[in-house]
Nucleic acid binder design. Sequence first.
DNA 1: CATGAATGAGGTTTCATTCAT
DNA 2: CATGAATGAAACCTCATTCAT
Lengths: 206, 206, 206, 206
Amino acid sequence: MKTFTAKGEKARQRLLDTAIRLFAENGFAGTSLDEVVTDAQINKRMVYHYFGSKERLYQEALSAEYRKLETLEAKTLLPDDPIGKVVEDLVSAYFSFLQANPEFVHLILWENLNKGRSLDAMEVQLSKSPLMERLVEVVCAGQKKGTIRKEIDSRFLLISLIGNCMVYYSNRFTLSRALGLDLADPKVLECASKAVADMILNGIKA
Amino acid sequence: MKTFTAKGEKARQRLLDTAIRLFAENGFAGTSLDEVVTDAQINKRMVYHYFGSKERLYQEALSAEYRKLETLEAKTLLPDDPIGKVVEDLVSAYFSFLQANPEFVHLILWENLNKGRSLDAMEVQLSKSPLMERLVEVVCAGQKKGTIRKEIDSRFLLISLIGNCMVYYSNRFTLSRALGLDLADPKVLECASKAVADMILNGIKA
Amino acid sequence: MKTFTAKGEKARQRLLDTAIRLFAENGFAGTSLDEVVTDAQINKRMVYHYFGSKERLYQEALSAEYRKLETLEAKTLLPDDPIGKVVEDLVSAYFSFLQANPEFVHLILWENLNKGRSLDAMEVQLSKSPLMERLVEVVCAGQKKGTIRKEIDSRFLLISLIGNCMVYYSNRFTLSRALGLDLADPKVLECASKAVADMILNGIKA
Amino acid sequence: MKTFTAKGEKARQRLLDTAIRLFAENGFAGTSLDEVVTDAQINKRMVYHYFGSKERLYQEALSAEYRKLETLEAKTLLPDDPIGKVVEDLVSAYFSFLQANPEFVHLILWENLNKGRSLDAMEVQLSKSPLMERLVEVVCAGQKKGTIRKEIDSRFLLISLIGNCMVYYSNRFTLSRALGLDLADPKVLECASKAVADMILNGIKA
DNA sequence: CATGAATGAGGTTTCATTCAT
DNA sequence: CATGAATGAAACCTCATTCAT
């Protein structure tokens, strides 16, 4: 079992952080180890010392970002809150998360374009999406109380939520150009968040 | 303007088709010209003859796929159709388009991850999104007739539509894994299409 | 199917010759492509153009040398020659071959140390050892005529012949040192050849 | 003279054993220190602690194996034994030795391919080949008694013996393939041993 | 005695591109 | 119009070795 000294751990972390940034920016194929080690101010050999290969460095980077999903605990999700507030908070929280974690967004998208190969190889232990579990509770409660329509399937609702928000990042450039609207503009995103919340709320409420 | 003989034109087209396929699959950085020319059964020199560089080959591939958007004419968009039918047809048409054009989906996503650099460089003559224009008409008409809520902004509605559908492709692998649901399964996509149409319809109708 | 121009063929041959020399001298692992291309005055990229990999370059080198065995046709092997002359010519021919083809000797030995992996991978079509076939005839005829003992198995005889000669090359340095006798000295080899012929002749004759 | 604690000595020995095995298998250039230390479950730094360099580790490995020759004492070599029995025992003993010490065989061959460089550098104190000395006695006695031909030179006889046996190992793979006969098969080796003894006996006896 | 950290040189291979015919 | 030859830079990776603790 390998162990690391404090100093080594710091170097390793610097390497990983740099890798996350560059892989997010340019993807796996578009990032060279030379760039990474230069930015991380470390010897190239160390990549192999700590990670074994570029592939595994990428996987660790992906995995580290992926775990950030767990921080999106959506604390606001209380079954007894009024449905309007819940949806609004939820959408707002998700937008904030994407905005605050651009590397997460990019790495997830690169990974999907790569058919999820690395995630498969890693067998990352996904923590069953806490957000999803809370959403199920809320929807269930809402349907019992009659505030949410019976047809709503919480799984598709979750996808809808993600899709409505994610699209502003995954298709930002093509959509901005097509609509003549800068989707990176905070004011636009503010409106978007409201529009999404409005759409979803009206879309699910009874 | 360059012209090509029939034989040359055929080779050029074979090259472009292969490029579209491979760039869609592996992105710009992940695709080598060697692969392309091997698959297209053409001499490498020809890439430079026809396109000048790898970059421009990529741009042509992207541009060719991008133009497919124009085929998504959404013929069903008639201002006088009942709003329910319009939404249903629209969502269904968009899903079908994405399903039928996986290379379009991938190239668009790669391009967005690359910050739209190539599209910018190309100054692609975007056909002002016919879908968008029709959608504006429909929404306008609906709002006049009182079947669509006044707050609905057709631009955000379009993004919502795209996001709701696109997410099944852009995040297919991570979502499939997180939800334990195969988003590539036609039956699942069928349900998804209905859920999306239902959500949007209820989300916009007055 | 790849074809080569005359000029290309020359470069390829220069590369192969250099490879034979260096692989024979230092083995596969001990030879770097940089050395090879420097000596062959060629660009490193060409190795991959012509051979695909270092491994395949090695295999071609091995294969080319291996085929030299076919030139050892032992024209002297006539069934009706007196047995003494046959053995003498045979041993002398084999010694001469080994002496004239040091690269053959080395490559064969490296290959055996590598457990014949490359030969296996190549499935080299061995021409059924013409030497062996002639030897069978001679031994057969000799046994019929009563000049060669009946127990002699021509297969083991061949191995014996090879072993008696090859050992002067495969174990030259350790034996020279152990016996205090320079086995590379032409005069010593002359004696060796006679001793081997004498030994084999007396070993097989009736 | 360096001394080592029992624990250190054990580690050193483990390192040496592993080195012998791997150098025998892949040669000097084909073996990396990383492999060695991984297999020996030891820290890489220890190689330098105990041996100073890869080169010297190799030399120690070679030297250790080389000394095994001394164990080939050929106890059976008694001047008064009947010549037939002596030859038979000798050949059998040599075959057994080679069979029992594959690492010896390989290291000797690698070393010869490397022109005996390491042995030279080491100035290994070669124990004057006890086998050789006994053989001289036997041959001398035989020639006096008239059971062995006068022309026999015991040095060439020794080489012949070694060559006849060694060839089954040094050329195993190429010969097996050329003859369509598995030279690693114990039954084949049994026959080989008899054929060699027969050949040598008839080759030297008066 | 022993460990993990670190290094610089060099290994094989792949890249996009240009040349010559 | 089309082909094979050729290139230099840079890719990923491995090497034997040294350092600091």
